[in-house]
């Protein structure tokens, strides 16, 4: 069995009710779990971009992307190679921060260039936007202080600008 690798699909769809259900249904019926999902309108409010991160082998992914493209509401599908894409996630984390540990916690937040967005007597909430791996590290370093709640957004991604050849780094699937 081929290794299940993370793939990022960027799917441009009509901004209408039910489209997300159609798209996610194609993964669900094949029992593939969507690792991360982000949906928002594009600069054209008639269109939305769905960014899907899914762990799946390449062959079934090709079939899923072909089936996705058959959906009437899907305009374009781009598979982004993580090495050729800029990826960002947002993380919100509530951490225990007693008077004894607060200094250490704020130090970690500032090293990562995160922001403290809410403070209580014994806890605080920090936010950090960045590469998924950076968010992983951030959460790991905060864990010893006691994470009360943690929420990550779905991943958004765009292809990197090409600086060498004239060929587009995007692989169009259609």
């Amino acid at each position: 069995m081929a290794e299940r690798k993370l793939h990022i699909l960027s799917v441009l769809v009509q901004n209408r009710a039910g489209v997300l259900a159609r798209v996610s249904g194609l993964f669900a019926r094949r029992a593939y779990n969507i690792e991360s999902l982000a949906v928002a309108p594009t600069d054209d409010p008639a269109l939305s971009r769905i960014t899907i991160v899914v762990a799946v082998e390449s062959t079934p992914l090709e079939q899923i992307t072909k089936q996705l493209f058959k959906l009437v509401d899907v305009l374009k599908i781009t598979e982004l190679d993580p090495a050729e894409a800029v990826e960002r996630e947002l993380l919100l984390v509530s951490v225990r921060a007693t008077p004894e540990t607060r200094g250490h916690v704020t130090e970690v937040v500032s090293i990562f260039e995160g922001t403290i967005v809410d403070v209580g007597h014994d806890s605080l909430t920090a936010s950090l936007a960045g590469r998924p791996a950076k968010l992983d590290d951030f959460a790991e370093l905060l864990r010893p202080f006691g994470i009360l709640e943690l929420q990550r957004s779905g991943r958004v991604a765009l292809p990197r600008h090409d600086r060498t050849a004239r060929t587009a780094p995007i692989r169009k699937v259609s």
Binding site: E62, Q63, K66, Q67, F69, K70, S174
Partner: peptide, 8 residues
């Protein structure tokens, strides 16, 4: 006529 059939 259905591209998804090719190579399925």
């Amino acid at each position: 006529v259905d591209p998804a059939e090719l190579g399925k």
